[in-house]
Amino acid sequence: MDVFKALADPSRRRLLDALYERDGQTLGELCGHLDMTRFGVMKHLGILEVAGLVVIRREGREKRHFLNPVPIQSLYDRWVSKYRSRWTKALGAFKNELEK
C-alpha cells in the first residue's frame, strides 16, 4: 500500500514532521530540513503526494505543501481502533449509541 511505502523512508517522515510543525511550506523551505538536492526533495514530495499524505497547491508563483493526516487516520481506524473497540466493549453503551 502506498501509504506504508511512503512512510517507510526517514527523509519522507522528516518532511511530514516539518509540515506538522508548520503546514503550507514551500519547496524552498522544505529543502532546508533535508541535506539533499532540490530534485531529491521534490521526488520525495511526489511520493508523499501520490500516497495522499501531502496535498500540493499552487499559490501564485509558489507551490505550498500541506500535511494530509486523513490516510493515516483511516489506517488507524481500519486496524487499531477495531481492536481497541473489543477491549472497550464492556464500556460500550456510548459506542453502541453512536453506531445505531
Binding site: R22, D23, G24, G52, V55, F66, N68
Partner: peptide, 9 residues
C-alpha cells in the same frame, strides 16, 4: 495566515 488542507476519496 495558516491553512490546513485535507483530502479524502
Amino acid at each position: 495566515t495558516l491553512q490546513h488542507v485535507y483530502r479524502v476519496y
